[in-house]
Amino acid sequence: MKTLFSALLALLLMAPLASAQEAGMTPDGMTGAQKTEIEKIVHDYLLKNPEVIREAIQALQAKEEQSKADAQTELVARNKDALFNDPASPVDGNPMGDVTVVEFFDYRCPYCKAVAAPLQKLIEEDKGVRLVMKEFPILGQDSILASQAALASVGQGKYWEFHQALMEHKGQFDMEVIKGIAAKVGLDPAKLEADMQGDKIKPAISANHALAKTLDIGATPTFIIGDQVVEGAVPLEQLKELIKKARGS
């Protein structure tokens, strides 16, 4: 908010100061009366046109958002290998697909749960999509436990089934709940629990957190489609449009 206020103040003062300079005055050489007059002009103008403040704030927010998007696009290009080719990140859809969609997600995130089914529908309908799953638990210990279990399920070849079941679960996660879900999808719960202590599980999650920090990602779900970073529960039709854009068609 300080940034917004400072920029707004600069914008508001720019026009009056320019007028003063045109009249042969400089900011340093203004008298108290001249400064008071300029302040009154700004004050009166804002009272008469308060929408200017909203417009200035909106313009600044749009500029900051575009600046962040441009920076993230560059960072995606620099970190392509970690994003698209990390062997620790499970892959669904077509492994040889022409468009890769990366999702950073958390099993306790309601918005992630909301997009889980549409994502599954997407990879069923579009055989050219390669979906890379980035376990990114940010909502507490339950989230971490679920992500560790999900990565451990890869060893039994049932990551996707388990992933969907974890997304469909309503409520908290603890080890007993996780083992119950695992049994329902055909996993060996005892083996799953043991595999969660494997030496590759925690480093994989830590690497995802480090990558998210590098890309300035702090929310779930966040998608990378092509070179674009998109936050939030993106509707299926918008996902399709972003994929179409990534294909260049």
Rank of each mutant, 00 (worst) to 15 (best):
Thr3Lys: 12
Phe5Arg: 11
Ala7Asp: 09
Ser19Phe: 06
Ala23Cys: 04
Met25Cys: 03
Thr31Asn: 06
Thr31Gln: 09
Ala33Cys: 02
Lys35Phe: 09
Thr36Val: 03
Glu37Gly: 10
Ile38Pro: 00
Ile38Val: 09
Lys40Gly: 06
Tyr45Phe: 14
Leu47Gly: 10
Lys48Ser: 10
Lys48Cys: 02
Glu51Met: 13
Val52Thr: 15
Val52Trp: 01
Glu55Gly: 07
Glu55Ile: 05
Gln58Tyr: 05
Ala69His: 06
Gln72Met: 07
Gln72Trp: 00
Leu75Gln: 14
Asn79Ile: 01
Asn79Ala: 08
Asn79His: 15
Asn79Gly: 06
Asp81Glu: 15
Val91Met: 07
Asn94Ile: 06
Asp98Cys: 01
Thr100Ser: 10
Glu103Asn: 08
Cys112Arg: 07
Lys113Trp: 07
Ala117Tyr: 07
Pro118Ile: 10
Glu125Gly: 05
Glu125Ser: 13
Gly128Met: 04
Leu131Val: 07
Val132Asp: 04
Leu139Tyr: 01
Leu145Trp: 00
Ala152Met: 07
Gly157Ile: 10
Lys158Gly: 03
His163Ser: 05
Glu168Ile: 00
Glu168Ser: 13
Lys170Asp: 07
Gly171Ala: 09
Asp174Leu: 00
Lys179Met: 12
Lys179Ala: 14
Gly186Asp: 11
Leu187Asn: 04
Ala190Arg: 02
Glu193Arg: 11
Met196Thr: 07
Pro203His: 10
Ala204Cys: 09
Ile205Met: 08
Ser206Phe: 04
His209Gln: 13
Lys213Tyr: 14
Thr214Val: 02
Thr214Trp: 05
Asp216Ala: 10
Gly218Thr: 04
Gly226Ser: 08
Gly226Ile: 10
Ala233Pro: 02
Pro235Gln: 12
Leu239Cys: 04
Lys240Phe: 09
Leu242Gln: 01
Ala246Ser: 09
Ala246Ile: 10
Arg247Asn: 06
